[in-house]
Every structure is written in structure tokens, then in C-alpha cells.
């Protein structure tokens, strides 16, 4: 799986900072991440760890007063950081698409579904012929398993359920066959049965289209169900990347261990759930060492002072922690 695909999106040393009156917040601090073709990657982490900011940075849509201050983002070998705003618009929605957390507010309430879908398709594919456009929009709705596309085309967002709206957002995002779909907590606003439907749908349509997906979530269950690989983020940095099975079976970073411990298992009786103690560090103060040091049970002196680098402990399993020294671990044994 790991070596199978060609790299689709390569992020190197990405740093995104917000310049506020009170100081500078480093939301992303040197992200290195590669997404291969035909894979789905989950990004997991708690609120404010930079999951969504990674997505916005890839699309170069970091909201004001934020700025990408360093790093490179290569999409199919094309450096996105050097593109003009107009070239970037051609990428968004056509090559890289994004869907959002709350489907009810992601659709414009004053237009019906047909005209919103039509807008995206005519914008990117230059189709203006009415009949051709209608055929395309119906195709897009069929792709997301909508039973009566003709009537849905004429409906307005307020007439549809949350699940339907998220299907339509997916149809919008996939209408131009993008190579990469970024789904930012696509199921958070939906109830549990619909969540499962939408996740299965995402998995299927991505496979059919031969695209890749980045799934951003704080729900490890969602990741386990949907993704090939998982990347765990903490305080604007990536702390561990591994294949899903590998990560769930053998978490290395103390934070990843803590997260999995805190996740209740079916059939297990527990009085109290395990927690990761403490809170996230203030991103406004630069820290020289590991961001997790205050909450870590295994922290040593070196964790305070030196920033851990990514180490490949097993093939495809990378972790940034001093417990796993470079060149050590499995290679020595």
C-alpha cells in the first residue's frame, strides 16, 4: 500500500502563522506530509491542533490575518506556492476539492440545487449549454446515490435533510473529478446512522473516481472505518503517521497511546475513561522542545530542549518522539 502509489500531494516544511495584535500564533509548525494516489489519509487531532488549517493551507485559503510563511506544497509535481491567485482558482474545485463540516450552512439558501451544481460545473468545465449542463448535474447527483435527481435539482437547501445536503456537497466537490478531496469533519453535524452512510458513500465514490482523500476528523472510529493511513497531529505538528491497522495495533507516540486509551472499547466495563492529562500548550509562545512535554508521562530533560524529528520506526510508520532515537529501535535489534 505504502509504496504502491505515486505521490499526489507533497507537503514539506509547511508553516502557517497568524499575526494577531497579541502576538504571533504558529498554527502549523513544519508539516511534512505526503498523500499518494488512490489512498485515503485521515488527519486526527484535538481542536486547534491545525487539522483544518492544513486543509486551508493546501488550498491557499488561510483566513486573514493568517499567512503561509514557509514551506512547499507540490501537487503532481506542481508547486502550488508559486501559482497566482487566478491559477489557484483553477485548482480549487477542479483538481483539489473540499467539503465542510456543516452541510446546512455550506449551501447557498437562495438558489436551488440545480443552479448551484450548474454554477460549479460551468465554471470549471465551460459548459454553458442548458441541456448538457442538466445532464451533467443529474450525473453528479446520481454519483452520490440520490434517488430522484430531477426533482432534487429543483429543490432548495431548506427542503432537504442534513444527510441529503452533505451528499449534495459531495456531488458539488466531485462534479469536476478532482484528484484530491479534502473532507473537513464531513460527518460531525450528522446523526450516527447518516454518518455511516456518508462515510461509506465517500469511500465508494473516491474509489470509483480513482481519487485520493484527506479526511479530517477527531473521531478515531471514523478513521478506522474509512482510511488507509492515519496522521496524528498535535499543536501544529505531526507526531505520528502510520497505516491504520499498524497505528491502532501499535501506537508509538505517547499522545497517540493516550488517545487510543481514551477511546472506549465495546464490551469493556470501565468506571472511568482514561484521559490525556493537561491541556494543549499556548501556540503563541515558541517552545524549543516537544510540544507534548508537559502532558507526557515519559518526558525527559531532552524533551524540554530539543525538538524531536520524524523517525521511521517500522517501514511506513513514522513518529516524532525522543523515545525512539534516530537509527535506533528495530534497526539495532
Amino acid at each position: 500500500m505504502i509504496a504502491a502509489g505515486k505521490p499526489l500531494l507533497e507537503i514539506r516544511g509547511l508553516r502557517t502563522q497568524f499575526f494577531l495584535h497579541e502576538g504571533t500564533v504558529t498554527a502549523l509548525d513544519g508539516i511534512d506530509l505526503t498523500i499518494y494516489e488512490n489512498e485515503s489519509l485521515g488527519i486526527v487531532g484535538e481542536t486547534g491542533c491545525g487539522k483544518s488549517m492544513t486543509a486551508f493551507s493546501v488550498l491557499r485559503l488561510v483566513p486573514h490575518p493568517g499567512k503561509i510563511t514557509d514551506g512547499s506544497i507540490k501537487f503532481k509535481g506542481l508547486e502550488l506556492m508559486n501559482l497566482t491567485e487566478e491559477q489557484m482558482r483553477g485548482i480549487r474545485g477542479r483538481r483539489i476539492s473540499m467539503i465542510f463540516q456543516d452541510p446546512s450552512s455550506s449551501l447557498d439558501p437562495v438558489f436551488n440545487i440545480g443552479s448551484q451544481l450548474g454554477e460549479v460545473i460551468s465554471l470549471h468545465q465551460n459548459i454553458y449549454d442548458k441541456d448538457a449542463l442538466k445532464k451533467k448535474t443529474i450525473e453528479a447527483l446520481k454519483l452520490v446515490r440520490i434517488a430522484a435527481p430531477e426533482s432534487v435539482l429543483r429543490q432548495y437547501p431548506h427542503e432537504l435533510s442534513g444527510g441529503m445536503k452533505q451528499r449534495i456537497m459531495i456531488a458539488l466537490a466531485l462534479s469536476c473529478n478532482p484528484s484530491l478531496l479534502i473532507a473537513d469533519e464531513p460527518t460531525t453535524a450528522l446523526d450516527v446512522t447518516i454518518q455511516a452512510q456518508i462515510l461509506n458513500l465517500l469511500k465508494e465514490v473516491i474509489r470509483e473516481a480513482g481519487s485520493s482523500m484527506i479526511l479530517i476528523t477527531h473521531n478515531l472510529g471514523v478513521v478506522a472505518e474509512t482510511c488507509d493511513r492515519v496522521c496524528i497531529m498535535y499543536a501544529g505538528r505531526i507526531v505520528e503517521i502510520a497505516e491504520t491497522f499498524e497505528l491502532f495495533g501499535n501506537p508509538l507516540h505517547p499522545y497517540a497511546k493516550g488517545l487510543l486509551m481514551a477511546f472506549p472499547k465495546l464490551g469493556e466495563q470501565k468506571e472511568e475513561l482514561a484521559v490525556v492529562r493537561g491541556t494543549v500548550p499556548n501556540l503563541m509562545e515558541p517552545f524549543p522542545g516537544c510540544p507534548f512535554v508537559d502532558r507526557c508521562d515519559y518526558a525527559t530533560n531532552v524533551c524540554e530542549r530539543v525538538r524531536p524529528t520524524m523517525v521511521e520506526v517500522e517501514p511506513g510508520h513514522m513518529v516524532a518522539c525522543h523515545l525512539y532515537p534516530k537509527g535506533g529501535g528495530w534497526q539495532d535489534g
Binding site: 485559503l61 485548482i91 480549487r92 474545485g93 473540499m98 465542510f100 450552512s105 460549479v120 458539488l172
Partner: peptide, 13 residues
């Protein structure tokens, strides 16, 4: 509102 963000992410000027 989010639909503005969404249409920007879908490449609208």
C-alpha cells in the same frame, strides 16, 4: 457564512 467559504474552496472568484 460557510457557503461563501465553500464556494471559494470550489474555485469561485
Amino acid at each position: 457564512r460557510q457557503f461563501v467559504e465553500a464556494s471559494r474552496a470550489l474555485g469561485a472568484s
